[in-house]
């Protein structure tokens, strides 16, 4: 039991921090645009595909650096020549634009790389078991994912709270007009934040590609979860995104690891269920079976009981 808890905890943190790399960019971009960027997870997918192609020529490590940069530049261009132009027609137009962009990227990815999963693997140097605990291996690549995510989290935190550019970003997000009138180039800041947000999503894709698979559906798989995180954490709140990322990461891994059903719970409570009852299928549902819907269940509960999210301040 203890090894199960230990590994679920580790895996949950790995997943959670990976999700945070996407959610942090998404929530920052939401704060400044006022709309959710539906194409955010598409940049995550592009990161994986770019890194895959780059790794074919120059190896994994250069891909790890170049792919996020490429995705970041692409993101900045999308903001500068797409979103900023669409912005004048309001939020609905922006929303539809990012929605369309997500479809476009998915089609382009299928067009260039095809529909099948790509053989994008972790580098050989990381293909070993870091340690064995109660007979279960913990792959070194997961530890690497963990390290990269933590490093990114610390760098992001330091930039946002300790540096002057971080101050300007925070001011530009909450008071764009006043910040501009103090002489700061707010549109440039927005383009930068959008670009860096996309680059972070790209980096998440690069390191998740080998672990979770590089296929055209990977954006959709993660995209909806990231929206859940941003809403649960509170729209625009970085702290909220962090807490919610870990929460969802742990929720998902523990739900898969713990093979219990409602009838098990009822048995503990000494309630017997009629084996012929019409609801017996419901009672027999095990946690791993319902694991995929748990984040959305959490989303619904949060929207009912705390519509602003865990750390959100906005009413809408």
């Amino acid at each position: 039991m203890s090894e199960l808890l230990f590994f679920s905890l580790l895996n949950g943190i790995v997943t959670g921090l990976l999700l945070f790399m996407l959610a942090s960019g998404l929530t920052l971009i939401f704060s400044m645009m006022g709309v959710l960027n539906f194409a955010h997870a598409s940049f995550y997918m592009l990161g994986a595909y770019f890194a895959y192609t780059i790794s074919l020529y120059v190896g994994f490590w250069l891909g790890l650096i170049l792919a996020p940069l490429l995705v970041g530049v692409l993101g900045a261009l999308v903001e500068r020549y797409g979103l900023r132009y669409v912005h004048r027609w309001g939020h609905v137009a922006e929303l539809i634009f990012t929605f369309g962009l997500a479809f476009l990227i998915e089609e382009v990815v299928q067009f260039i790389w095809g529909k099948e999963t790509k053989a994008y693997h972790e580098p050989e140097i990381l293909q070993f078991s870091l340690f064995t605990f109660f007979g279960q291996d913990f792959p070194a690549y997961k530890a690497f994912m963990l390290l990269v995510s933590i490093a990114i989290f610390i760098v992001l935190l330091l930039i946002l709270t300790r540096s002057r550019i971080g101050l300007i970003i925070q001011a530009a997000i909450t008071h764009p007009n006043m910040t501009a009138m103090l002489g700061h180039n707010v549109p440039l800041v927005f383009m930068g934040v959008f670009g860096v947000g996309c680059a972070l999503a790209g980096l998440a894709g690069v390191i998740a590609g080998p672990a979770l698979g590089t296929f055209p559906g990977m954006a959709v798989v993660l995209g909806s979860i990231v929206f859940v995180i941003v809403v649960v954490g509170g729209l625009g709140s970085l702290t909220g995104a962090f807490v919610a990322s870990l929460l969802i990461g742990l929720l998902q891994t523990f739900a898969i690891a713990l093979d219990y059903s409602v009838s098990d719970l009822l048995a503990v409570l000494n309630i017997s269920v009629d084996a012929e009852s019409a609801l017996r299928d419901l009672w027999a549902l095990s946690l791993p079976q319902v694991a995929p819907i748990l984040p959305y269940l959490l989303l619904v509960l949060i929207l009912i009981f705390r519509p602003t999210g865990l750390f959100g301040k906005r009413e809408t």
Binding site: N177, A180, M181, L182, G183, H184, N185, V186, P187
Partner: peptide
């Protein structure tokens, strides 16, 4: 001009 340009 834009606000930040005017400020500058």
């Amino acid at each position: 001009l834009k606000a930040h340009e005017i400020a500058r």
